[in-house]
Nucleic acid binder design. Structure first.
Ligand code: MN
Ligand code: MN
Ligand code: MN
Ligand code: MN
Lengths: 221, 221
DNA sequence: TAAAAATATTAGCCTGTTCTAAGAATAAAG
DNA sequence: CTTTATTCTTAGAACAGGCTAATATTTTTA
């Protein structure tokens, strides 16, 4: 049995390790806002349960079992977010905090029903992929808008951060998933971009914003 | 801040005290399946938070604050049950266990949305009243089917127990809320009743079942 | 009313999850 | 290659929420 607390550690570690395959106690501590000694002892405990690979002074890794458990929690989180947006009418900026709680509900029937009512969605409202019932997830193949060049035409596929403030900023610019974006110019000094999409012909986005926006180049046929 | 554990104590104490206005540590212990010393110390804790009136060797009572908190948890529980049945297609026998978890979600926006999507329902799928946003609940004015007499014609308004087994039994007899029931005969020895409703002209119900069924007499105009 | 049963309380222990303070190991800087 | 800074670990404490064993009180029975 994995507690709610343990689930939050697993999920966060999964997200941190998805980049380099490993993470430090320090990073995990900062991410969870829990002091290092607490994180350290929890890592030992999760290692005892076969979910984490822990060796003194070495970076943390998830075991295959740990990865699967984490992915299943993330599955519940993302299915929930999708349900809240699609079936209940919440905005994409509201659903993350609610899903942080609902992801811990223990009821396969509940999440199977959500999955079914949504028609087995592949991505959540932020464009992140939803792991399947076995914990398998397709890796995202997107690129950052900040890495694109003047003249590029790209499609807005996902955001890498789902804070209320950031998503409200995008709402204010009517910048939503699926929008086709033309990069009109890019300031090399600070990375600010001038872009156009839909009815909005000229919007300025800071590099900070562009780094959180994931896109694909338009398909060439 | 009231923890999930404390919420379950409050809710259970609310249900127990709704009959006589007070309850014993022993009753609460049995209901929660938690040993008496644990319940005892929790009662002191909740008394410290101003939610319970605790005096050594005296029956337990909820304070007004405790009653309100409990009613608001019950509100979330019952709204959730209604949503699961009406909007997600669950059977009334499935929803109680799921609602036991969802009732602890801390998100006014979530439950306000549910309330709104349901059109501000007054009762849950088991016929129990849903407290309003201030924790006010109309007391049920129903009578037990087991207290009715031969020849009575009554309407099935609520069940007093929502165990999976009991509700599945009612499902198997197509006996659902709103059905008009005619009492064809009543065996005085053991309280068994022969009733008719809808297409079912003769069904035998044990006293145990009849005691869990709440009805109203047909309105006389 | 005295004995027995039921109920309630206290004391002490355990696990889970957090913290602070202090020391050990590793990494970075000079 | 030392010194310094950072990171990691250990030790010890606290609180929440559970338990058992023992004791105290109240209620019931004889
Ligand atoms: Mn999210
Ligand atoms: Mn969470
Ligand atoms: Mn219920
Ligand atoms: Mn509950």
């Amino acid at each position: 049995m994995i507690s709610q607390t343990e689930e939050n550690y697993l999920k966060t570690l999964f997200n941190l390790t998805s980049l380099k395959g490993e993470a430090s106690v320090n990073e995990l501590s900062k991410q969870l806002d829990i002091k290092m000694p607490t994180v350290n002892s929890m890592m030992k405990r999760l290692a005892g349960k076969g979910l984490v690979v822990y060796e003194s002074y070495k970076p943390l890794k998830l075991t295959d079992k740990g990865k699967k458990e984490a992915a299943l929690i993330i599955r519940k989180h993302r299915l929930t977010e999708m349900y809240l947006v699609e079936k209940m009418g919440f905005g994409w900026e509201e659903v993350h905090v609610i899903a942080e709680q609902l992801e811990h509900v223990q009821s396969p029937a509940f999440f199977n029903k959500i999955d079914e009512l949504l028609g087995f969605p592949k991505v959540d409202p932020h464009g992140s992929p939803i792991p399947d019932a076995h914990g398998k997830m397709e890796s995202e193949q997107y690129i950052k808008l900040s890495d694109c060049q003047e003249g590029d035409v790209v499609t807005f596929m996902a955001v890498t951060h789902s804070s209320d403030a950031f998503l409200k900023f995008l709402n204010s610019r009517e910048l939503s998933l699926g929008k086709v974006i033309r990069i009109k110019s890019k300031e090399e000094f600070d990375g600010t971009m001038e872009i156009g999409y839909g009815k909005r012909k000229s919007e300025m986005l800071s590099q900070e914003v562009c780094e959180k926006i994931q896109v694909t180049h338009e398909k060439k046929k």
